[in-house]
């Protein structure tokens, strides 16, 4: 297998196996916003209703499985989007 696709396989493994083990503590910005008392300014303000909120695939009871499913799907979508974008940028060069 080409090296580049080995790394894609590793990414999918990270999404499937490691993401359910992630720490659920607030990240740096959430910590600061909580401590300074403005975390609520961002709650319920989402302009776009996400299909998979909080990285939990809807309809799956088991949280670890829901996270892994969301992770694998997101990894594949991101691969496709960045691949497509790179090809688009490159194609324009060929036509220049």
């Amino acid at each position: 297998m080409k090296a580049v696709y080995k790394v894609l396989l590793i990414a999918l493994l990270v999404a499937a196996v490691l993401s359910p083990l992630a720490s659920s503590s607030p990240d740096g910005l959430e910590r600061v916003a909580t401590d300074l008392g403005f975390i609520d300014k961002g709650e319920g303000k989402n302009i776009i209703d996400a299909l998979i909120p909080d990285y939990l695939f809807p309809g799956i009871e088991n949280e670890a499985v829901a996270t892994a499913a969301a992770g694998v799907l997101g990894t594949l979508i991101t691969f496709g989007a960045a691949y497509g974008l790179a090809r688009l940028v490159k194609k324009r060069e060929a036509g220049r």
Partner: peptide, 30 residues
Amino acid sequence: QVPRLGVMAAFIFAAQMVNFPVVAGVASGH
């Protein structure tokens, strides 16, 4: 380079899901 961009984006997406504790129970990062 094209597939490399796709794969690197996929890897970063996956890795960003894996929060590691910075101070256990207080804050995390990814």
